[in-house]
């Protein structure tokens, strides 16, 4: 089941932009595509470091209602949230993707088939999108394509 997860927040160096994870019924997921950058606010000439890091809990966030890209697939069971007020519990040394960008830049990564980023079928385990270095705190947005397995 293909799901598009759009996450947004005012950038924070300590709180994640968004995250998604396995439901209590435990399902694996894989991320095949992600795009992120500054959003509707006017970005300046500052640096951002964007990271996608494994997490074992989802923290406290604003829940995102997920819908499958194909309506015939039903309702997704993985959970996702954005604009964290309490950060997910991040797994040390499990930064899967890290890139430094100018705040004005947009970045997109597409995984080759078979080399996507997988998350385990363990409740609440998933991936978090973060900006651990944010030169100026403008609105930012991440758009991930995730498959529920």
């Amino acid at each position: 089941m293909q799901i598009q997860i759009v996450m947004a927040r005012t950038a924070s160096a300590t709180l994640s932009v968004g995250s998604w994870g396995s439901p209590a019924t435990t399902r694996r997921s894989m991320m095949s595509d992600i795009m992120f950058g500054a959003a509707e606010a006017t970005p300046g000439d500052f640096g951002f470091v964007w990271e996608v890091q494994a997490c074992t809990t989802q923290g406290t966030n604003t829940s995102i209602t997920l819908t499958a890209a194909n309506p015939a697939d039903g309702t997704p069971t993985i959970t996702a949230g954005q604009n964290h007020s309490a950060d997910p519990t991040l797994t040390a040394n499990q930064v899967r993707l890290s890139i430094g960008l100018n705040q004005r830049s947009t970045y997109r990564w597409v995984a080759p088939p078979g080399s996507e980023l997988y998350t385990p079928a363990t409740s609440a385990n998933g991936l978090a999108v973060r900006t651990p270095t944010a030169g100026a705190l403008v609105s930012c947005r991440a758009n991930a394509t995730v498959f529920e397995l």
Partner: peptide, 9 residues
């Protein structure tokens, strides 16, 4: 096995 990344500035 290669993926692709693009940065637009």
């Amino acid at each position: 096995f290669r993926g692709a990344a693009i940065i637009v500035d």
